[in-house]
Amino acid sequence: MTETLMTAIVLTLGGMMVAAGIAVLFVRDLLSAIIITGFVSLSASVMFLLMDAPDVAITEASIGAVLATMIFLWGRGKIGDDG
């Protein structure tokens, strides 16, 4: 039961992550791309937790979802969406 559930969770999450990774490249608005990258990092943190790596999960959640997103938002505020 739990094995099937875990497999289903990982398959769904992995499919969403790869789809989001492709969406980062093709979505038109740069702000959306930054938010989607944050989503990829957060899903990766869930996946680290499923792989019994709580330290890595905490680090990825605090860094990928907060610090990296803030850095990219700062860069977008300086450059803008063009190109």
């Binding site: 990774g21 980062v24 490249l25 990258t37 990766a44 990825e60 990219f72 450059i79």
Partner: peptide, 18 residues
């Protein structure tokens, strides 16, 4: 776009860590 390249780099980084 240079920021888009940085975002793609971050995505690849996440994959390598996984």
């Amino acid at each position: 776009h240079v920021l888009r390249i940085a975002l793609a780099f971050t995505v690849a980084d996440t994959g390598a860590n996984l």
